[in-house]
Lab assay of single mutants.
Amino acid sequence: SEFSSRSGYGEYVQQTLQPGMRVRMLDDYEEISAGDEGEFRQSNNGIPPVQVFWQSTGRTYWVHWHMLEILGP
């Protein structure tokens, strides 16, 4: 990996993601499973900070930056 740390990767995702971009989950996290795909909606200063609309659940759920792989527009 070109990223030395999880936080470095998270910063990359945070700087790159734009609303509407497709993402894939890298880790299991509460209701969301690794491999689930969705659409980035928004972020804020909460914890976790990233709101994604997940195809698997049909609704939005908040996750962490480093848990997401960017699939593209």
Rank of each mutant, 00 (worst) to 15 (best):
S1D: 15
S1V: 12
E2A: 07
E2P: 13
E2L: 12
F3H: 14
S5I: 15
S5L: 11
R6W: 15
R6A: 14
R6C: 15
S7H: 09
S7K: 14
G8F: 10
G8S: 11
G8N: 15
Y9R: 08
Y9Q: 13
Y9N: 07
G10E: 07
G10V: 13
Y12P: 04
Y12F: 10
V13Q: 01
V13D: 07
V13G: 04
Q14M: 12
Q15N: 10
T16D: 06
T16Q: 09
L17Y: 03
L17Q: 02
Q18R: 11
Q18V: 10
P19Q: 09
P19G: 03
P19D: 07
M21C: 06
M21D: 15
V23A: 03
R24F: 03
M25R: 02
M25H: 00
M25V: 01
M25D: 03
M25I: 00
L26Q: 02
L26M: 13
L26N: 15
D27K: 14
D27E: 14
D28K: 03
Y29R: 04
Y29L: 02
Y29E: 08
E31M: 08
E31T: 08
E31W: 08
E31K: 11
E31G: 05
E31S: 05
I32M: 08
I32E: 00
I32Y: 03
A34F: 02
A34H: 01
G35W: 00
D36W: 11
D36L: 01
E37R: 02
G38S: 09
E39T: 12
E39L: 10
F40P: 03
R41W: 13
R41N: 09
R41P: 01
Q42E: 12
N44K: 15
N44I: 08
N45H: 13
N45F: 07
N45L: 09
N45Y: 06
G46F: 11
G46N: 15
G46C: 15
I47L: 13
P48M: 10
P48L: 07
P48Y: 13
P49G: 11
P49I: 01
P49M: 01
P49K: 04
V50E: 07
V50T: 11
Q51E: 09
Q51W: 03
V52M: 07
F53R: 14
F53C: 07
F53T: 08
W54N: 09
W54P: 02
Q55M: 14
Q55A: 11
S56Q: 07
T57H: 13
T57W: 01
T57L: 13
G58D: 11
R59L: 01
T60S: 13
T60M: 13
T60R: 02
T60H: 08
Y61P: 01
Y61R: 14
Y61Q: 14
Y61D: 04
W62H: 15
W62K: 07
W62F: 09
V63E: 00
V63A: 03
V63K: 07
V63G: 00
V63S: 00
H64Y: 10
H66K: 04
H66S: 04
M67L: 06
M67Q: 12
M67R: 01
L68G: 08
L68D: 08
L71R: 01
G72V: 07
G72Q: 06
P73A: 11
P73V: 05
